[in-house]
Structures are given as structure tokens and as C-alpha cells.
């Protein structure tokens, strides 16, 4: 259908496009800048001559980082933590959300109330630390994964999604001989892909970017995730006290950011379609 827009609608389009372009620039500029700075010469970056495109291209910062075994260890740790955390989160959250979506579940209100309680109140850092410590989880992957396994927010989104699925499907599956668990795994979860993917993505990005749990629960360098390293390089090196060679330190920051960001950035486009769907669905029905 072809419509000749009025002046008003043309103006709207123009403003709209202009605004979007501004937004795109605002969003992409930092990404490009960080990348440009990471492959530019340190002196150029320090003196502010790198504005958009790299100057005096050199890969020395990357060489330095990639030849550092700590980066690879941290990388592996981050991947490990993220994968395990995301997987377990999805399993546990869906296992809790599914029964809670059933109206006939005894004590449903109470359980929901208790879950909602944790949205507003938490034990605080020190008590949580003490629990983790007494469970003997310190300095293990479980200290990172377990305390933040179920996010109440995600639980509610998922429960809302499950509630919206037609009950008849499950009835049909039951008549065909499915147990409750089979209904969940064979019928409900495949139909809930959007919500699973978006919650998985939320969790993964969160875990990828988190440093604080690692900081307080882990004691060994060989256990540290990438973000600890990123933080160290970016925050602490702005205050280098002068010993050692600091001639590459500015580009090093940007190279580190690039290295730490690219993988998670790559995931986004592939889950985009689920992401939009999933994020919306929880909202409308909630």
C-alpha cells in the first residue's frame, strides 16, 4: 500500500530518522573509539589525538595481553562460570516457576510471597558471605554460581509466561501418558524458548560482567574471572605509581575492554529475535 504522507507525517519521519541516527552515533561511537584506541599508539591516545579512527596502528597492547597467561586463565574462568551459571539458572528457575504457575499448587501464595520478599529484602553482604563460608564454598566455582542462582525477577517473568501457555496442551500430553516432568521438558520448555533465551542472556551477561562476588569469594588468582582483571587494569592503572614500564598502559585498557566485550557482543545478534519477544511477553502479561 502506497500512501502519500502529509507534511506532518513527513516531518515526523524526518525527525524520527534524525533522532535515531543521533542515537546510533551515541551508541556506536564509544565502541568504535575503544576499538580504535586499542590498536593505536599509546602516545596518540594519551594526547587525545585518537578521535574516531586509529592512529599509528600497532597491536602491542594486544600482544601484551594475549601473551599474558593470566588473561587466558581468566577467560576460561569467565566462560566456565557463565556457562554453568546460566545452565543451572535456567534449570532451577524453570523448575520453580512451572509449579508456581499452576493454580492448584497448595501453598502457592505463601511460596510466591516468600519469593517476592527477597525482591525487597536481602540478608546483606556479610551474612551472605558467612553462609557461603560455612558451606565451605569459598574459593570454588559454587561460591560464584549458587548465591545468585535464582533471580526472583526472572522467576516471576518465567512463571507469567508459563501461566499464559494453554492448559489444553498439557492436558493432551498428560492423556498421552506424560508425567509432570515430561510435560515440562517436552511440551512447556520448547514452547517457552523466547523466555528461556532472554533470561539465559540476562543471566549470562550479568555473570560475564560481574566482579564483586569473585572479588570477595575467591582467594586465588587462578580462579579469578576476566572482569577482575579488567577492573584492575582500568581502575588501578589510572593510579600507577611510577614503577615499571607504563608506556603502553592507556592502550592496554582499551584492548582489555575489547577483549572482554567482544564475545558477549557476538552473542547478541543471534538471540535478538528471542530477546525482543521474551522481554515483552513477561511485561504484558505481568
Amino acid at each position: 500500500m502506497k500512501t502519500r504522507g502529509s507534511f506532518g507525517s513527513k516531518l515526523f519521519d524526518a525527525v524520527n530518522i534524525g533522532l535515531m541516527i543521533v542515537l546510533i552515533v551515541v551508541m556506536t561511537y564509544p565502541l568504535i573509539y575503544v576499538f580504535s584506541a586499542s590498536i593505536s599508539d599509546n602516545a596518540m591516545v594519551m594526547s587525545g589525538q585518537v578521535v574516531l579512527w586509529p592512529r599509528s596502528v600497532t597491536l602491542v597492547a594486544y600482544e601484551r595481553l594475549l601473551s599474558n597467561p593470566d588473561v587466558w586463565i581468566s577467560y576460561w574462568n569467565t566462560i566456565r562460570y557463565t556457562a554453568v551459571h546460566t545452565l543451572l539458572t535456567l534449570i532451577v528457575t524453570s523448575a520453580m516457576a512451572y509449579p508456581l504457575a499452576k493454580k492448584w499448587l497448595p501453598g502457592r501464595k505463601t511460596i510466591l510471597l516468600m519469593a517476592a520478599f527477597t525482591l525487597l529484602f536481602s540478608g546483606g553482604m556479610i551474612p551472605t558471605f558467612l553462609i557461603v563460608q560455612n558451606l565451605g564454598l569459598l574459593n570454588t566455582i559454587w561460591a560464584i554460581v549458587l548465591p545468585s542462582l535464582v533471580s526472583t525477577w526472572h522467576l516471576f517473568i518465567m512463571r507469567t509466561f508459563f501461566e499464559a501457555l494453554p492448559e489444553e496442551l498439557e492436558d493432551a500430553a498428560t492423556i498421552d501418558g506424560c508425567s509432570s516432568l515430561q510435560v515440562l521438558i517436552r511440551i512447556v520448555l520448547p514452547l517457552s524458548l523466547p523466555v528461556l533465551v532472554s533470561i539465559g542472556l540476562f543471566t549470562a551477561v550479568n555473570q560475564w560482567n560481574s566482579f564483586f562476588d569473585a572479588l570477595i569469594y575467591l582467594n586465588e588468582r587462578s580462579m579469578y574471572p576476566l572482569q577482575i582483571m579488567v577492573r584492575n587494569i582500568i581502575i588501578a592503572s589510572s593510579n600507577v605509581q611510577g614503577e615499571g614500564n607504563t608506556a603502553y598502559i592507556e592502550t592496554l585498557k582499551y584492548a582489555m575492554i575489547t577483549i572482554a566485550t567482544v564475545p558477549i557482543l557476538c552473542v547478541y545478534p543471534f538471540v535478538q529475535k528471542y530477546f525482543v519477544q521474551g522481554a515483552m511477553i513477561g511485561g504484558i502479561k505481568g
Partner: peptide, 21 residues
Amino acid sequence: WQVVSQEGFTEKRQIMIATNS
């Protein structure tokens, strides 16, 4: 040697002290 990164040192120490660990 339990090594933490520099900017997390104070926090780590405070938590260690607060939890007696």
C-alpha cells in the same frame, strides 16, 4: 599468598575482618 587485585584490596580486607576470616 592470597593475591587480590589492587582496587579490590580494601573491600576484600574489610569483608575478611567483618566475617572474621
